[in-house]
């Protein structure tokens, strides 16, 4: 993926890529659950790997020690922008 199309949903990100969360497009309990697990707008996350069958995905939060598994269906609700596309802060 290139920066030509910077905004995408988390399920389109490739393993190994890092990105920043722009917004969540879910409502209700899904949204709350994502927020609770630390998937907040502004957070940096890295897609670590896919499960052997391609779903769910495993992401790492803030380059830290928290790893979260999430289904593609839910990952679709997370709009991100690839790290390479944002000027580093």
């Amino acid at each position: 993926m290139s920066c030509a199309e910077p905004d995408q949903t988390l399920d389109q990100v490739q393993p190994g890529q890092s990105c920043r969360i722009l917004r969540l497009t879910a409502a209700g309990s899904i949204r709350q659950r994502l927020l609770d697990m630390g998937l907040l707008p502004g957070r940096r996350i890295q897609l670590v790997r896919l499960a052997p069958l391609g779903d769910p995905l495993e992401v790492r939060l803030d380059a830290g020690d928290s790893f979260v598994a999430i289904r593609r269906q839910e990952a679709f609700h997370i709009t991100v922008t690839l790290e390479a596309c944002t000027p580093s802060r």
């Binding site: 920043r20 969360i21 722009l22 917004r23 969540l24 497009t25 879910a26 409502a27 209700g28 907040l40 707008p41 502004g42 593609r72 269906q73 679709f76 609700h77 709009t79």
Partner: peptide, 20 residues
């Protein structure tokens, strides 16, 4: 069919984010 309920319930625009 990939269910994409997000589009139906909330359009990205009115859900503003808190990123700086």
């Amino acid at each position: 069919r990939m269910v994409k309920p997000g589009l139906a319930t909330a359009s990205p625009g009115d859900r503003a984010d808190g990123s700086p």
